Simulated scan of single mutants.
Amino acid sequence: MTTVVESGAVVRMPVHFDDLDAMGVLHNSRYAVLVERAVALWWTERGVSFAGGHPTTPDAFNVVREYAITFHRPVTGTGEIAVRFWLDRLGTSSAEYGFRVASLDGGTVFAEGRRVNIRVDPASMRPAPWTEHGRAVAATLVR
């Protein structure tokens, strides 16, 4: 379930037993997966996804160019966490997200970071402009 907040969105994401490392904390690689799934879920709820192996809109065809994360506190155990994300900048073909992985009440920030997506043309695999529809949907995430 996603929630719209003052700026950006919050998506509740489950942490499963197999997401934990040998110490019983969320493995560092799983943060990127949780952010990816939260962002994908948000866009899917707005009609931008893949179905039958094909993008539902041209804007669904995009790749991650950059990903940076700073860890603050470990997630210990299973349960739900909140992934909050927003757009710091929407360029012609790029989207610069900020994100925060936190407790459901937002009181504990486990990690935060930045992610840049680039919309690409499926034939050339070169950067391509976001569509007007994609820009309008993305505008609701701009901080």
Rank of each mutant, 00 (worst) to 15 (best):
H16Y: 15
A32I: 07
T44A: 15
G8H: 03
V101S: 07
G47V: 00
H27Y: 14
F61M: 12
R115K: 13
V39M: 11
E96A: 13
E132Y: 04
H133A: 15
A38S: 12
A123G: 01
V25W: 03
F17D: 10
W86K: 05
T44I: 07
R119T: 03
A95T: 04
M1P: 07
P129H: 10
R73M: 09
S93M: 10
S103D: 05
T92C: 01
T2N: 08
S7Y: 14
V137R: 12
T78R: 07
S49C: 12
A128C: 03
S7M: 06
L26V: 11
T3Q: 15
G47N: 00
T140C: 03
E6P: 04
P55C: 03
M1G: 12
L34D: 00
S7E: 11
G77Q: 05
G107E: 08
F50I: 05
F61I: 01
F110D: 01
V64D: 02
N117S: 12
D88V: 04
E6F: 09
M23Q: 14
V109G: 04
M125H: 15
R30A: 07
T78S: 06
T131M: 02
D59R: 03
R100S: 12
T2F: 13
G113R: 07
T108F: 06
M13G: 06
A111Y: 07
L26E: 01
T76L: 11
A82V: 03
E96D: 15
R84G: 13
V11F: 02
A68D: 04
R12T: 14
V101E: 04
P127A: 13
I69G: 06
N62I: 00
A136P: 01
T92E: 09
A38Y: 04
H27Q: 11
E66V: 10
